[in-house]
Write a protein that binds this DNA or RNA. Structure first.
Lengths: 96, 96
DNA sequence: CCCGCATATGCGTATGGGCGCATATAGGAG
DNA sequence: CTCCTATATGCGCCCATACGCATATGCGGG
């Protein structure tokens, strides 16, 4: 439910990961690690939290695991996520 | 920033309080206590968290303190909050 | 001045969550 | 089979946070 989603998003590294995934493309853990400046175990666990919140799905591709935003998110949840991500984007725009 | 907001909202009682306040009216702590089934100290502290996240403001009125949603919330944050609250409302609608 | 209602807060405690480290598992290459 | 890369997970530690209880503070009434 929404509380699980909020809980998942209210952590800097996880919110960061969502920003990376916001292009609706696939990204492997090693890429996310770099872009979020996180260690391997940290990133893996955080992705697990996002996954069990239903926000992302994963797919094995050879030795990599590709994550992407869950395309079957309920419309209202997807809208909320989008609105949340927009906040930081606006902030970056303001900073420039 | 948005992380503080998400942190504040990712707690059941606080999210509940936001739903009560979503009518953009003023509500005193004792009313919020009842509607959220919380003890006095719990509710007071939770409102403090919402307040320091900038989500609500308070006003002394005789022996009561009236809380309401911060009318000066940045537009993008207000939109995110609205989208989040909408999720639970949709759920209630679906349950009926 | 004293009392009672409404609200905030100090304090001690318990629980949850994140982290690092080490290790397990999975898949490809030789 | 072995090795290497990529990812997940068990474990123990630490810190943040929520809670209850008691107490302080603010405000109005008598």
């Amino acid at each position: 439910m929404i509380l699980t989603v909020l809980n998942a998003l209210s952590e800097p590294t996880r919110l960061n990961a969502m920003h990376v995934l916001a292009d609706h493309g696939e990204h492997c853990v090693c890429e996310l690690m770099e872009r979020c400046s996180a260690t391997q175990s940290r990133m893996s666990r955080h992705m697990g939290v996002l996954k069990s919140a239903g926000l992302v799905i994963d797919r094995r591709d050879a030795q990599w695991v590709r994550y992407r935003i869950n395309p079957d998110l309920p419309a209202d949840v997807a809208a909320a996520v989008e609105a949340i991500l927009a906040c930081r984007r606006n902030q970056e725009r303001k900073a420039a």
